[in-house]
Design a protein around this nucleic acid. Structure first.
Length: 646
DNA sequence: CAGTGAGCGAGCTTCCGCTTGACTT
């Protein structure tokens, strides 16, 4: 009988590529990620029995598992080629259990890119499933389950039903709350900035000292009348900018967010389509590496398309994000020839293409000119920049002339010691601004920086926080600041006002009241959960498990000890807050509370008709009779609610 | 005496990280 081999990979899109160069006796099937997990409805861990986990086959994977079983029967050996990371190792281990594979017929093979050379290399060094790596994943899984399924019920009991806590989401909530507090506590500082324009306004410069008060600014502006403006320095230099690395999941979400206003979720859906249609490499990755074959192809493409001088002198490799597992390569187009994309994903594709291509192109060079004009104890600084060589900017198509080249020509003609005639002086009142609320993709950036979450979960973390109503994505209220400005023209000082608008941003994450309350509660009783150090320490311990120097049970116990005892005590205490009746129907708005501004509505609650104010678990209720459902007026309602409030 | 309100119990919610369709809106 001829021998047949079955290779199991995680993703179905790999199958087509693999069959192009794999030996004919290998059949490839996909398992589509995990095939077993802890039960959904219960904790699934015997805390008293060394945290023994109860693994269950995933219901939704029944069909897949059945197909894999049949394929195994038809094969002599099974090659487990799941991704080369902790999750992949664990999936391989679960596959052995679920498919009841005998050790002798199983090999584990790990490749980082789906290219002939790399896959054949991996096949030539098969190994066993690494139990230490599996143990590290198991520890991660169990700690996450313990945090989520033991702490969440405390929130249901003490705050409101349906809430949740978790290692990642609660630390993310903390980031949002801390930013909110920074914004609330921010006191804008006023200062005055002086600018001057010379030679009929063709040159402008900024004074390098700011003034604290209006009077000082005015006095300085006054003094500009009779000053002699002489150039003391002219510096002409060449500055270089290198191309940024190609994209990974977190940076893809950031760029798509800031350029196109896409949410991480939308970005990932579009990227999924590009990936499935074979236009880009895998889109859930933390790596900025490029496979050697792709790199070679790219460098040939660059020198062929743009010319040799546009190619980076040497192969550029980039610093990886901290904690990167690099199971995949960077996000890049599968073909260097730019293609048209039907549907709405063209600009996302172009973004991916540009960043990947640019990453191996030469740096751009700018001609920079700076000149100084002394005034009192400081000077006006004027600068201009023009592109001398566009380099990698060429890949984005608009790398040509940037702003400032006109001024550049002006500045370049001037000489040291030359006298300039003042055209206009301006003193502007300025306000420092608070840090902005996070955008969705800005939060992802911070999550990645803190080592929270993984490429496959960044988008869902953001949506979970919103599903739980811990935060909402809103356009911030536009506060127009009226600021003073003084002009010096032809020896006369005139006063004016200008309006400074908040920058036009959409979709900023604002913490809700319930979000604040959940955070405060968690911070009070479960400070370790909201702390990003929890995740950092966990990562370090997982490394030790993976290296085989500690047992996973000991690590799980160590982390569980940080919150387990508190869970036990709090479960025994009485619920703190009044719980709200569910099944609220027939809501009718009757107005807003004159003091608090909260919405007042009548509705049918479980116990009958009520008038209520506010949202969330802090809602104030007062019972009313059925007739009042339609006729209750605002004043009566306010009186009733005020009585209930205390 | 009837209507009201307090109290009880049952049943639900929840994590993070791998993967895609199969479902609605």
């Amino acid at each position: 009988m001829e021998s047949k081999r079955l290779m199991i990979v995680e993703s179905s899109t790999k199958i087509k590529t693999l069959t192009r160069f794999l030996p004919a006796d290998i059949v490839v099937k996909a398992c589509f990620g995990h095939v077993s997990d802890l039960p959904k409805r219960e904790l699934g861990i015997d805390i008293g029995k060394q945290f023994k986990p109860h693994w269950r086959e995933l219901q939704e994977k029944k069909g897949t598992i059945e197909q894999l079983r049949r394929a195994c029967e038809a094969s002599t050996t099974v090659i487990l080629a799941t991704d080369p990371d902790l999750e992949g190792e664990a999936i391989a281990w679960h596959l052995i259990r679920v498919l009841k594979l005998a050790k002798e017929r199983v090999v584990r093979v790990a490749f980082c890119s789906v290219t002939e050379a790399e896959v054949l290399r991996a096949l030539s060094c098969p190994r066993k499933v690494d139990r230490n790596l599996v143990d590290a994943q198991i520890a991660r899984r169990i700690v996450d389950r313990l945090v989520g399924y033991r702490v969440s019920p405390i929130l249901w009991r003490h705050l409101k039903s349906g809430l949740s806590a978790g290692r990642v989401q609660s630390a993310a909530l903390r980031l949002l709350v801390e930013r909110e507090r920074e914004i609330e506590g921010f006191r804008p500082e006023k200062s005055w900035q002086l600018t001057a324009s010379f030679e009929d306004g063709k040159i402008s410069g900024t004074y390098q000292n700011a003034f604290a008060t209006r009077d000082e600014a005015r006095e300085a502006l006054e003094g500009m009348k009779d000053h002699e403006y002489i150039i003391s320095h002219i510096d002409r230099t060449v500055e270089h900018t290198s191309a940024p690395p190609p994209l990974r999941t977190a940076t893809l979400q950031q760029e798509a967010g800031s350029r196109f206003g896409m949410s991480p979720k939308v970005t990932m859906t579009l990227a999924q389509g590009l990936y499935e249609d074979g236009h880009i490499t895998y889109h859930r990755t933390d790596s900025v590496d490029m496979s050697p074959e792709a790199m070679q192809g790219l460098r040939t493409y660059i020198s062929g398309t743009y010319g040799e001088k546009y190619l980076a002198d040497q192969q550029r490799s980039f610093r990886q994000a901290p904690g990167a597992q690099m199971a995949h390569e960077c996000i890049r187009p599968t073909s260097w020839t730019r293609t048209g994309i039907p549907g709405g994903a063209q600009r996302l594709y172009d973004l991916i293409w540009t960043r990947a291509v640019a990453s191996q192109m030469a740096r751009a060079a700018y001609d920079v000119c700076k000149l100084q004009v002394p005034y009192r104890d400081s000077h006006f600084l004027s600068s201009a920049r023009s592109v001398e060589f566009d380099g990698f900017l060429r890949a984005s198509g608009h790398g040509g002339d940037l702003h400032g080249s006109g001024t550049m020509a002006m500045l370049a003609n001037l000489k040291c010691g030359q006298r300039l005639t003042l055209h206009e002086g301006t003193a502007r009142e300025q306000l420092t601004s608070p840090p902005p609320h996070y955008s969705e993709s800005g939060l992802v950036k911070e999550l990645e920086r803190c080592g929270l979450g993984r490429p496959s979960t960044y988008a869902t973390i953001v949506t979970t926080l919103q599903d739980r109503r811990y935060c909402e994505s809103v356009a911030p209220s536009k506060v127009k600041q009226r600021l003073e400005v003084m002009h010096l023209r032809e020896g006369e000082i005139t006063l004016g006002k200008r309006e400074q608008e908040a920058p036009n941003v959409r979709g900023r994450l604002t913490v809700t009241e319930i979000g604040q309350d959940v955070y405060s509660y968690l911070d009070k009783h479960f400070g370790c959960i909201t702390d990003i150090a929890f995740t950092r320490d966990l990562e370090l311990e997982l490394d030790r498990i993976a290296a085989g120097s500690v047992k996973w049970m000991d690590i799980v116990k160590k982390f569980h000890d940080e919150f387990g005892p508190t869970v036990d005590t709090l479960m025994k205490t009485k619920a703190l807050e009044k719980r709200i009746p569910r099944a609220i129907r027939e809501v009718r708005r009757i107005g807003r509370h004159p003091d608090t501004g909260q919405m007042i509505e009548t509705c049918k609650a479980r116990y009958g008709p009520v008038v209520k104010m506010g949202d969330g678990y802090k809602t104030v209720f007062a019972k009313i009779d059925a007739a009042s459902m339609d006729s209750l007026d605002l004043n009566t309602a306010v009186t009733m609610l005020n009585r209930k409030m205390h």
